[in-house]
Design a protein around this nucleic acid. Structure first.
Lengths: 237, 237
DNA sequence: CCTACCGATCGGTAGG
DNA sequence: CCTACCGATCGGTAGG
């Protein structure tokens, strides 16, 4: 059933707020402060952990006074949940976009798919604005049971794109071992990178992606009758 | 130089404490309470995180009053550092013993060595009394700079046993990619298991070990002139 | 979103 | 190792 026939209020065009104090009211100030809180919280939660970060720290980092975060969020815990949900939403959006973009350029093998997924995951973990997902990964415990389940759904959506790819690679012999366990270990290897990766010293995310695939994937089994000696790029090492 | 000639006090035989209150004074009570604190702290730090655990929680779990932990440790932070150092000491001891035991039974290939190391690491992460190392892995941030360096030395000792093994496997073609990055990713895959492993539902640690090796290692390249078809245990999958 | 504030909890200590 | 306690900080709120 369409909702078009329901007596909806006029689509809330951003009209000038009436009861607002005449402060410096930017036109695009609406969700601006909330966003500033989320970004500050993500950064501090990642650096110091949830429990070690005070709402006062977050307020100060967003240029507010101590009580103001509670105008935007019901509790410190709700702020954490929002960081995680915002992060997962963005990560899933980027993953979908990356897959679509790569697939539109050329047909993708399972190996190609995994490369896109891994590369995007590194971007989400280590690239710009990459505080949200590490917080989700490492501050899990601090979430209430109820909030955890929504984040779990988002995680399931995110991982759903990986499952058929890993299964195909297992079927072709390029990935050994149970695909479910393989997925957990692959995510372990990737997610652990937030503990050691240093963009100043280490390889680029492209290089990381290459090494990861090299490490986890076997050479494709040559179809019967084909030459056995496939490209072996390690002769120089 | 031997210390035998120094005027040492008589070797402190456990004599009855004189000024002690006549409580329930077990004979072997000496380091007992300290150990109880360490174990309680390890468990709570793992479950709730360092910052979310109060010294009162720890004291209660060890059957003490709120101020008593500070008789054994200078600060909450020192207690955390002791948990990590105790954990690393034990892990390193077990790793050395596992390698020695396996090597005494038969000569070990690099592959065998990795199996022993991985199996022992799973034991340290997921086996009985396995709270200490996860705390070290995931509460790193809460340590002061000074304490961090000692734990780092212990970590370096622990990882030192892995380096030549991974290099040998890389040299033989059984491990692809830079061995340094491979080590980081392997540890990532292993260390991440504390986030998902459930002994009730999941495979045994032996099975985990098998899958891990299968996932990370290529089939050994047959020496020139040998039959190409080596054991392939996956024909049934 | 700020001001002013509250009750609770926390790490740590003195003194025995 | 306990009792009793302190100063500091914390999450959160009322009222504007």
């Amino acid at each position: 059933m369409s909702t078009a026939s329901l007596p909806l209020p006029a689509p809330a065009a951003p009209r000038r707020a009436r009861g607002r104090p005449p402060k410096t009211a930017d036109e695009r100030d609406d969700g601006n402060r909330r966003q500033a809180l989320l970004r500050a919280a993500a950064r501090l939660f990642r650096q110091q952990g949830f429990a070690a970060t005070s709402t006062r720290d977050i307020a100060a980092a967003a240029g507010m006074r101590s009580g103001s975060p509670f105008y935007h969020f019901d509790s410190k815990e709700a702020l954490l949940a929002a960081v995680m949900q915002e992060g997962m939403q963005s990560a899933l959006r980027r993953q979908t976009a990356a897959m679509a973009a790569a697939a539109s350029a050329q047909p993708l093998s399972a190996r190609d798919c995994l490369q896109v997924l891994v590369r995007n995951h590194y971007e989400v973990l280590l690239g710009p604005d990459s505080d949200f997902i590490p917080v989700m990964l490492y501050e899990w415990r601090s979430l209430s049971e109820a909030q955890r389940s929504e984040v779990n759904h988002q995680k399931a959506d995110y991982e759903a794109a990986w499952v058929p790819v890993l299964q195909a690679l297992h079927a072709s012999g390029e990935l050994s071992g149970d695909p479910g366990l393989a997925r957990l270990m692959l995510f372990g290897a990737l997610n652990w990178s937030v503990q050691w990766y240093d963009p100043a010293r280490q390889a680029s995310l492209d290089d990381l992606t290459q090494t990861t695939l090299q490490l986890f994937l076997k050479d494709p089994v040559a179809p019967k009758g084909a030459r056995t000696a496939t490209r072996r790029s390690e002769v120089l090492e």
